[in-house]
Design a protein around this nucleic acid. Structure first.
Length: 588
RNA sequence: GGGGACGUGGUGCAGUUGGUUAGCAUGCCGGUCUGUCACACCGGUGGCCGCGAGUUCGAGUCUCGUCGUCCCCGCCA
């Protein structure tokens, strides 16, 4: 029996037609005589009715159980008026069964398929193929398909060429830990899985491919999170003869097209922009969710010459006094909660946390009222603070203070506030080119070492204070999540060489690691720039999930295992021998 | 590498201060029922309480270890 229709398409327009449906039994409702079976496929549900008058068929139907895979032939008929379901797409009709074929029976499934969120995540992952039968899980995967199709449609239309790059490639020293693949033909040597196709796409620009894209798997052997998997997918894009404005504009149009095509949510462009510097000063974060306000401000001017030594001394030391106001929270922040936030502030490196409350009735309270009543009065006169507001503020060196306040702001957002609506697209630009890695005691690239520095900064600070150099890089942030990252790249051998020097790679090392790139730059490299939106995170935002596992067909757990296949697994002695590898005992 | 939460019939949970037969819901099996849609009702089945030590007359409950899952910090995108 071949199907003539799917379970999502029949309506009263098909009344009287003889049809065949294939799918899985979602649920049986046996009323003694008449028996209803809900049939499910990826398109929807259709109710099938087995009438006892057809006793042979009815007898066969009584043996059905959930998740049997079947074909049913029958007549589409309108349900009686009182039995119609307007909320279901196929709720107006049913199939009066004439013939039933069971392709496969099913044991009682280990997870609930016909009830949402009734099974634990580890079981759902172990039986992912069953979990994927659930409409909500299936829809997330289909949404992902529609999104990538929209991305391809847009980029193809813009003249981009989709080019595959190798998965077995070379280990590079910068960035995350590589996944390594031992080489059998060259024992003792290893491939690395790409953290991104970065170098290949730059080389494709040297080749003249102009506009490249790839929906590319990227691999990083680092610890996992809800929004981090060992393999994730990037929409990898690179363009020649462009600058950052071209890339940002392209990315905006791409996001608008793909979001609108996939979700129907209208996206207005251009997106807001903040420099890194400004984002840090306003929100204490390089990926702020700006929907919640609570911008930091400098409070020094109200405390100049204060007699309160804690603040006065800090100002003399050149430290800052900064804080932010949270409206509607004065009544929520009990003494206990304030203590809790103070504790957190100390963990974040601050000496403590001060607060001012303007309560609902307009009465002002503060942790430093005893010392600074006048200062607080002046401050509240200058800054308009509505009733029921809380100002949290502290003192400290600039970087520590802004970051710590940013963390406290984030904590308030996740713990105290109702989640905001809508999509908040934000560009953060002009990141620092380098940062200092305390652990390794050396300068590292903030984005990656192929990022074009701001050349004015570069000239001024390359030898004196490289940490002051800004990069021509940009991140796209949506609702506080970093969803894309990119930069203008270096296309000149001399600049690339200097950047390597600042990173502490001498010429020989640089030749060994990236010689092929430096070599390529000798042969007419075009100026180029690119960006790489993270597909998994974008989809998680679109389907409203906190975890990218929900938009990946076969995801891994927080410890990197695949509960379904059992990977990673041990391999045979024979396999190890071929690779000339030996496993060292962990505990000798 | 560090911190937190969890692990009890197939599934999701409860289980008091350590005390006799480990509850509830759902599923599953059987029965009644011809318009249900989480069908309803009646009856039944099903658990070495993740694993291993220990404390104790006695451990689901306390201690230590171990494994697994989730969340967070570090790390990383």
């Amino acid at each position: 029996m071949k199907r003539t229709h799917t379970c999502g398409e029949l309506t009263d327009k098909n009344e009287g037609h003889r049809v065949t449906l294939c799918g899985w039994i979602d649920r049986i409702r046996n009323l003694g005589g008449i028996e209803f079976a809900r049939l499910r496929d990826r398109y929807g549900f259709t109710q099938v009715i087995f009438d006892p008058k057809n006793s042979k068929l009815h007898h066969k139907a009584r043996k059905l159980s959930p998740e049997f895979c079947v074909a049913v032939r029958g007549i589409v008929r309108k349900r009686p008026e009182e039995a119609q379901r307007k909320d279901q797409e196929t709720g107006g009709i049913e199939i009066l069964a004439e013939e039933l074929h069971v392709f496969s029976s099913s044991e009682t499934p280990p997870i609930y398929i016909n009830i949402e969120d009734r099974s634990s995540e580890d079981l759902r992952l172990k039986y992912r193929y069953l979990d994927l039968r659930k409409p909500s899980v299936r829809e997330a995967i289909i949404t992902r398909h529609r999104f990538t199709q929209a991305v391809r449609e847009f980029l193809n239309g813009e003249g981009f060429v989709d080019i595959e790059t190798p998965v077995l490639t070379k280990s590079t020293p910068e960035g995350a830990r590589d996944f390594l693949v031992p080489s059998r033909l060259r024992p003792g040597r290893f491939y690395a899985l790409p953290q991104s196709p970065q170098l290949f796409k730059q080389l494709l620009m040297v080749s003249g491919f102009d506009k490249y894209y790839q929906i590319a798997k990227c691999y990083r052997d680092e610890d996992l999170r809800a929004d981090r998997q060992p393999e994730h997918t990037q929409i990898d894009i690179e363009m020649s003869f462009v600058d950052e404005e071209d890339v940002l504009a392209l990315a905006e149009r791409l996001m608008k097209f793909a979001f609108e095509k996939t979700t129907g949510i209208e996206v207005s462009i251009p997106f807001k922009r903040l420099t890194y510097e400004k984002a840090m000063m306003l929100f204490g974060s390089d990926k702020p969710d700006t929907r919640y306000g609570m911008e930091q401000f400098n409070m020094a001017k109200w405390f100049e010459g204060t007699s309160f030594s804690a603040i006065g001394n800090a100002l003399e030391r050149g430290e800052l006094v900064r804080g932010f106001a949270a409206h509607g929270l004065a009544s929520v922040f009990s003494r206990k909660k304030l203590d809790h936030y103070t504790e957190r502030a100390k963990e974040l490196g601050l000496g403590g946390l001060m607060w001012i409350k303007v309560e609902k009735d307009g009465i002002t309270k503060s942790s430093i009222m005893k010392h600074c009543a006048e200062e607080i009065e002046l401050l509240l006169k200058d800054v308009s603070i509505p009733p029921d507001s809380l100002i949290l503020f502290s003192i400290g060196p600039r970087a520590t203070l802004t970051r710590a306040l940013g963390e406290l702001r984030k904590k308030i957002i996740t713990e105290e506030l109702r989640s905001a609506e809508g999509l908040d697209f934000l560009w953060v630009t002009d990141f620092p080119m380098f940062s200092f890695d305390q652990e390794r005691q050396r300068i590292v690239a903030e984005h990656h070492p192929f990022t074009m520095p701001n050349l004015d900064d570069f000239e001024k600070f390359a030898s004196s204070d490289p940490l002051k150099i800004r990069a021509r890089s940009y991140d796209l942030v949506i609702n506080g999540t970093e969803v894309a990252s990119g930069s203008v790249r270096i296309h000149r051998q001399d600049i690339q060489q200097k950047v390597f020097e600042i990173l502490g790679l001498d010429q020989e090392e640089a030749q060994g690691k990236f010689g092929f790139l430096l070599e390529a730059f000798k042969y007419g490299a075009p100026p180029h720039a690119g960006i790489a939106p993270g597909l998994d995170r974008l989809l998680a935002l679109i389907v409203g999930s906190d975890s990218i596992r929900d938009v990946i067909a076969f995801p891994k757990t927080a410890s990197g295992s695949d509960l379904m296949t059992g990977a990673p697994s041990e391999v045979s002695e024979e396999q190890l021998r071929e690779l000339r590898l030996r496993i060292e005992n962990e505990k000798p």
